[in-house]
């Protein structure tokens, strides 16, 4: 219908009205959906809830953070590259947000329950930002969480030691608890700050 109106305008006034209407629609769309740097899910799904042992000394549930924007990442405290880089990026992004960072919660779930007990998680995460919280549990509990979030984690033995190859991306969960986006590893604090600002304004 709109196409027909544009194709055969009856008068210059009608054409002008159509152009104005199109501009309004375009600007409304641009205003309603600013681009995220992260990959976006459509439609977004509710973040599956879990109950794990939290680094703060009490039960950790993702649903406890409704009302905040959550950065959810998976890793292990002995990780030498991906995890420290990612957590440092989160800390820098929060600093860029200023007071708005109070509504951003970083949740870090370990893939290494053998070593990452709550106290160790608390000490490790606190070295990046005192507000970060971590979660651990039994092998089965953590495997179920990973399955629900599509996270891979593979234990690799190195002599007497071991490491993990794990998914390195971060989920961005909005204030209503929906998984809105996935940020691949390697994005800058500015990219995170950009997306967090957009989600915080919703």
């Amino acid at each position: 219908m709109r196409h027909k109106l544009l194709a055969r305008p009856d008068s210059p006034r009608r054409l002008a009205a159509a152009v104005v209407a199109l501009l309004l629609v375009a600007s409304a769309q641009a205003a309603s959906s600013p681009p995220l740097k992260a990959g976006v899910f459509d439609p977004p799904r509710q973040a599956p809830d879990f109950s794990l042992a939290g680094s703060a000394g009490h039960e950790l549930k993702i649903s406890d953070y409704r009302g905040k924007v959550v950065l959810l990442a998976f890793g292990f405290t002995s990780c030498t590259e991906v995890c420290p880089t990612t957590l440092n990026t989160f800390a820098l992004a929060r600093r860029k947000l200023g007071p708005a960072a109070a509504d951003v919660q970083v949740v870090y779930i370990t893939v290494d329950p053998q070593r990452d007990v709550p106290a160790r998680l608390a000490k490790y995460l606190g070295s990046f930002d005192p507000t970060f919280v971590g979660g651990t549990g039994t092998e089965d509990q953590l495997a179920a969480v990973r399955r629900n979030y599509g996270i891979s984690a593979e234990k690799k033995n190195i002599g007497n030691d071991y490491t993990y190859a794990h998914s390195s991306f971060t989920y961005l969960i909005d204030r209503t608890g929906r998984i809105r986006a996935l940020m691949p590893y390697g994005h800058s604090p500015d990219d995170y700050a950009n997306d967090l600002t957009i989600l915080l304004k919703e």
């Binding site: 681009p35 740097k37 992260a38 990959g39 991306f169 996935l182």
Partner: peptide, 22 residues
């Protein structure tokens, strides 16, 4: 990533590089 039935995922890239995903 894990995708639900009927769901789409749109990932933009702004830097030329090689990206590895598990």
């Amino acid at each position: 990533t894990l995708m639900m039935p009927g769901q789409s995922f749109r990932l933009p890239f702004e830097r030329a590089s090689e990206y590895q995903f598990a």
